[in-house]
């Protein structure tokens, strides 16, 4: 039985449909990753799970408690770490944690003990009594994470927790998340960093345009792709017609599968090559027969980016770049304001 169940949720902001019938199931004690480019709907999903916004349709339950009908009960179960860290610049870190403890009705003795534990765990001793306004990005993220953990939630929900962080802060946060998972906490983490999800997540979903396009463990998803991933170019910048012709040639070769054209990468061809067969000589011959030469050929172990590429025809980075020009961050910020 899943601890968190999300069934067919949809959410629109005026003219933008952020989530389109998204479903997922998360077992208890899992470190669950939500991977997708910026604008894919990750933050909307996270905000719905954190009870900050309501979906237009669909059902969500955490520990069999209906999230929409019993949001107050759900808030006792969850800890939330937002993408944009909002701290009160005037308060010190310790005062902020004290403030947050009172909002979670933690009694005085337990409060002092929890605050001290988290200060030590997140290595905040040196600066905890300084005003939050003086903190670096990494410090802000750590204090925010501590605030989300004060009441020992059953589920910790983090929206892009390591964006823009220094390596030291990132490693501390990664280690803490692993420890929390090992202690039995269900950790839900959204990210557009492939390596973060790959290294941390037990299970994940990849979302694109508000829909789940892949789900499973990182190993399962990568193994589904089969053998090694090959990226082929016959010239630096090719075109659609030429790429389609090469695709035709490749599809006739036994042992080559999942061929896609990556338009954003100069119409390079991406495919999976069967490990058992020595395909390179045959590939050269077939291409030469049609007057093509190999300009570049890169071979790599399948990654989550390849999973994304396979499902959408573009890499995560390309999807980010393409979304960057389309998003109105000011408008999104206004929409997310209560």
């Amino acid at each position: 039985m899943s601890y968190i169940q999300v069934k067919e949720i949809s959410k629109s902001y005026s003219d933008i449909q952020a989530l389109k019938g998204l479903s997922m199931e998360i077992p208890a004690g899992t470190l669950f990753g939500i991977l997708g480019p910026n604008g894919a709907g990750k933050s909307t999903l996270i905000k719905i799970l954190a009870t900050l916004i309501e979906p237009d349709s669909g059902e969500i339950s955490i520990n069999n408690i209906n999230l929409i009908k019993n949001s107050r009960q759900i808030r006792e179960l969850i800890g939330y770490v937002a993408q944009d860290v909002a701290l009160d610049k005037i308060l010190t870190g310790r005062e902020l944690l004290d403030f947050q403890s009172d909002l979670y009705h933690i009694n005085k003795n337990k409060k002092i003990e929890r605050i001290e534990t988290l200060i030590n765990q997140l290595e905040m001793n040196d600066w905890i009594d300084r005003k939050c306004g003086t903190y670096s990005g990494g410090m802000k993220r750590r204090i925010d994470l501590a605030a989300g953990l004060l009441h020992l939630p059953k589920v910790l929900i983090l929206d892009e927790p390591t964006v823009g962080l220094d390596i030291e802060s990132r490693n501390i946060i990664w280690q803490l998340l692993k420890d929390l998972r090992n202690d039995g906490m269900t950790v839900l983490l959204s990210s557009h960093y492939l390596d973060e999800i790959d290294k941390l997540a037990d299970r994940l979903i990849i979302i694109d345009h508000g829909r789940v396009i892949a789900k499973g463990t990182p190993a399962q998803l990568k193994n589904k792709l089969g053998g090694d991933r090959i990226t082929l170019k016959v010239r630096e910048f090719s075109n659609q017609a030429e790429s389609e012709k090469i695709c035709e040639i490749l599809s006739s070769i036994d042992g080559i599968s999942q061929i896609i054209i990556n338009k954003a990468q100069g119409y390079s061809i991406n495919f999976v090559a069967d490990k058992q067969k020595d395909l390179l000589p045959k590939l050269k011959v077939e291409l030469a027969f049609s007057n093509f030469e190999i300009f570049s050929l890169a071979q790599s172990q399948p990654s989550l980016d390849d999973v994304y590429l396979q499902a959408t025809g573009k890499t995560l980075l390309d999807a980010e770049i393409s979304m960057a020009g389309k998003r109105d961050l000011k408008k999104e910020s206004k929409q997310s304001m209560r």
Partner: peptide, 8 residues
């Protein structure tokens, strides 16, 4: 939002 996600 910090206040709104708390179980007030």
């Amino acid at each position: 939002n910090r206040l709104l996600v708390a179980p007030l």
